[in-house]
Lab assay of single mutants.
Amino acid sequence: HNLTITQGKLFFHYNPKLCLSEIHKMEEVSGTKGRQERNDIALKTNGDQASCENELLKFSYIRTSFDKILLRWEPYWPPDFRDLLGFMLFYKEAPYQNVTEFDGQDACGSNSWTVVDIDPPLRSNDPKSQNHPGWLMRGLKPWTQYAIFVKTLVTFSDERRTYGAKSDIIYVQTDATNPSVPLDPISVSNSSSQIILKWKPPSDPNGNITHYLVFWERQAEDSELFELDYCLKGLKLPSRTWSPPFESEDSQKHNQSEYEDSAGECCSCPKTDSQILKELEESSFRKTFEDYLHNVVFVPRKTSSGTGAEDPRPSRKRRSLGDVGNVTVAVPTVAAFPNTSSTSVPTSPEEHRPFEKVVNKESLVISGLRHFTGYRIELQACNQDTPEERCSVAAYVSARTMPEAKADDIVGPVTHEIFENNVVHLMWQEPKEPNGLIVLYEVSYRRYGDEELHLCVSRKHFALERGCRLRGLSPGNYSVRIRATSLAGNGSWTEPTYFYVTDYLDVPSNIA
């Protein structure tokens, strides 16, 4: 807008934040220059609390790290170098490059900038070799853009010569660093050979998330399962459950009422301010606690030095998902009996873990797994792929695949051998790939016309006998059925096997 004052003059007093240069501009645009008398524009009460600059400061050096910015700028000295009290560095987070010096300023003089007072450097006698002032900004957020400017702080001049310097606002972004852990990993099994893994992005990506790394490792069953005799009275049979499938998407929606109208769909109840505040506090606490764990609990591995020492970490090797089922080394339970199943799973520490690289999504279907087997899954978020990966501390989750139908069934015939004193040795093959492992066998036998009897055969007993022995049988026709019990439950009964026990007292003698 054009402003013209045809008559009258300007009068400025007691404006401590208004620089004289701005008042002189007002004289020019209003056409009143030359009308004012000496005392109409006070030299001592206008701009006496402001830094009124008329020179431009330029930054000469900028260096960044993930949490620091090192700045240096060209030296500046007023005509009387004693008038320079120091520099004021202003900075704040700036997602967009549209910041002005006066953003967030209120009537009390406060604003949204963080201000650092910096002492002037030592003055050199040689004007050509003056030290460049600077400042190291610490405690910054990774991968965050900051708006920065600097200006001088000078003393009051009796001659009211307006001098000083100020830089333009520059924008500097800190470097990326390792992201925080992925949030809320959930693993479920939808079949006997697959596990579905879902997660949420890290709360602090500290860069642009480029991919996720998912490692999985087959877990050995508890050692007590191999040692305890679950045929003993009072000892509860062990059981394991597989990871249940995901709930429906509708039930997972946030901010939804727990109660549904019987007449149909209901609208979600909005969260109160107290609920939102509580969630923010919980989120802040979780982030602080995660940072504490990362800094205190997890110790970084030592990389190899120039002395030739090897990095103890196993090298990563990509495998196809079809090879995942046989990740671990199978060892027989008892070496003397080769027909026992290889369900003991000690994992070799030198073995390469299978892994998958996930790009542009937060889910993965891990296939080719062994049925009813526990897996430990390790999830890392990465925001750099080359020249070397920059990934987060791992988040861990466990899951067990679903049982395989008929995996616990005894394959092959049940054979028998009759000894003296009416002892019958029953023999059968253990299931080759049971659900988890076989903890015991149930032997059901009966003599024709009598009630059915049951015998429990422990895992250890089966390994020693290759089956079991029935003792003290009365003469007669017998039928026997056997079924295995694994961590997933009972298998199917075998087809009945028949044998006849004679009275050993009636056996004919070869003595003449």
Rank of each mutant, 00 (worst) to 15 (best):
E217S: 06
G467Q: 07
F285L: 04
L235F: 06
E249T: 12
E224Y: 15
V480I: 15
S315P: 10
H371K: 06
D273E: 10
L280T: 10
A405D: 12
V414W: 02
G308M: 14
P508I: 12
E356V: 11
V359S: 08
S283V: 07
S367V: 09
F298M: 03
M402K: 14
H454Y: 14
L426S: 01
L455W: 08
V457I: 11
G489H: 07
K357V: 15
T340V: 07
S398K: 15
S486D: 01
S274P: 04
R400Y: 04
A395K: 04
R286E: 06
D385C: 15
I209S: 10
P238S: 04
S509R: 08
E442T: 12
S458C: 12
S257H: 05
L426M: 08
A394L: 05
S320L: 12
V439F: 12
R376W: 14
N339T: 10
K460V: 12
L379H: 03
F337C: 10
S223W: 12
V359N: 11
F298L: 03
H371M: 03
P205T: 04
L473A: 03
V296P: 02
N295V: 02
T497V: 08
P354T: 13
T272G: 09
R318Y: 04
S486T: 14
Y500V: 12
T241C: 14
D273F: 08
R400D: 01
L237S: 05
D385W: 09
T340C: 09
A335P: 12
G207I: 01
A309S: 09
I482T: 01
V414Q: 04
L225Q: 05
S239P: 14
E378R: 06
K357R: 09
R481W: 09
E310H: 14
E417L: 10
T347P: 08
A336M: 15
A263T: 06
L470K: 01
T401N: 03
M402Y: 12
R218P: 12
S344I: 05
V443Y: 01
D323W: 09
N435W: 03
V345M: 09
K406Q: 12
P413M: 15
E224I: 07
R466L: 09
V439Q: 08
D323R: 13
E356K: 13
D323T: 14
A399S: 12
H425D: 04
F372D: 04
H254V: 08
F337W: 10
T340P: 12
L379C: 08
L453A: 13
G472H: 04
I366K: 09
P403K: 03
P244C: 15
T415N: 01
E221V: 15
E249S: 06
E417G: 07
G234I: 12
R316L: 15
S492A: 09
T502G: 12
W493E: 04
L228G: 07
L455D: 15
S243A: 12
I482Y: 01
L440F: 03
F246S: 10
L453R: 04
K253P: 07
K317V: 13
R481F: 04
A263K: 06
E260M: 12
V296Y: 07
L369I: 03
R301A: 01
P403A: 01
P300R: 02
R446W: 05
S458Q: 05
V501L: 10
T333A: 15
N490S: 13
V457K: 03
R370K: 13
R471Y: 15
V299R: 14
L464V: 07
S248W: 03
D506W: 09
F499C: 03
V423P: 01
M402P: 09
E351Q: 12
S315R: 11
R353L: 13
A463R: 12
T373L: 06
G322C: 10
S509I: 15
N435E: 02
D323H: 15
V214K: 04
R483K: 11
S344W: 12
R316W: 15
V327E: 09
S344F: 05
R319M: 09
N295L: 03
K302I: 12
L232T: 12
R316I: 15
T494K: 06
T386N: 10
H254S: 15
S363C: 06
S262Q: 12
D408H: 01
V501R: 02
Q384V: 10
K302E: 08
A484G: 14
I418A: 08
E442M: 05
Y500H: 08
L453D: 08
G234S: 11
E378T: 09
K253S: 12
D311F: 14
S283E: 05
N435H: 04
K432G: 04
N206H: 06
D506N: 15
P431V: 05
A220R: 09
E378W: 07
N422L: 05
S239Y: 15
N490L: 04
E350Q: 08
L369S: 08
V439E: 12
S474L: 13
V327C: 15
K302D: 14
N421D: 03
A394M: 08
L321S: 09
R370S: 14
T241M: 06
T494L: 04
S268F: 04
G325Q: 15
F226G: 05
V327W: 15
N206A: 08
R481V: 07
E258R: 06
S341T: 11
Q429E: 02
L487Y: 08
S274L: 07
V423M: 07
D323K: 03
R400C: 10
G322L: 12
K361N: 08
L225A: 04
S348W: 08
C231W: 03
T497W: 11
F289C: 04
E290Q: 04
G412N: 15
G322T: 14
V480H: 00
N360C: 15
L235Q: 04
R313M: 02
S268N: 10
E290A: 07
R376I: 07
V397A: 11
L225C: 02
E404P: 11
E265N: 15
S315I: 09
N208M: 07
S268W: 09
S320Y: 12
T373H: 13
K236P: 10
L235D: 03
L379P: 04
T328F: 14
I438V: 13
Y500D: 06
Q429L: 07
F337Y: 12
N421E: 14
R459T: 10
C391L: 00
P496C: 14
L228Y: 15
S492V: 09
E433P: 04
T401P: 15
E404Q: 15
R370Q: 15
G491H: 05
K287I: 03
E279V: 04
E258S: 08
E247Y: 12
A381W: 00
H371N: 05
K460R: 10
C267H: 11
T502M: 15
E378S: 07
F337M: 15
D385E: 13
E265V: 12
S283G: 03
E260C: 04
I438Y: 03
L321I: 14
V480Q: 05
L235E: 03
A407L: 08
R447N: 07
M402A: 15
S248V: 06
R319T: 13
E389V: 11
L487P: 05
E282C: 14
P314S: 06
S223G: 06
S363Q: 12
A335F: 08
I209P: 15
V359G: 10
R400Q: 03
R319P: 11
F499I: 15
V296I: 04
S305P: 11
L470T: 02
T288F: 04
T272Q: 04
I377Y: 13
E217Y: 15
K432M: 07
S344A: 12
W216T: 08
A336F: 09
L213Q: 14
A394Q: 13
G436Y: 08
D506I: 11
N295F: 01
T333F: 14
G234K: 04
K271P: 08
R240P: 15
G472Q: 06
V411R: 13
L470R: 01
I438G: 01
E465I: 11
G234A: 07
G325A: 11
D311G: 13
I366R: 06
K236C: 15
T415W: 03
C269H: 06
T288A: 14
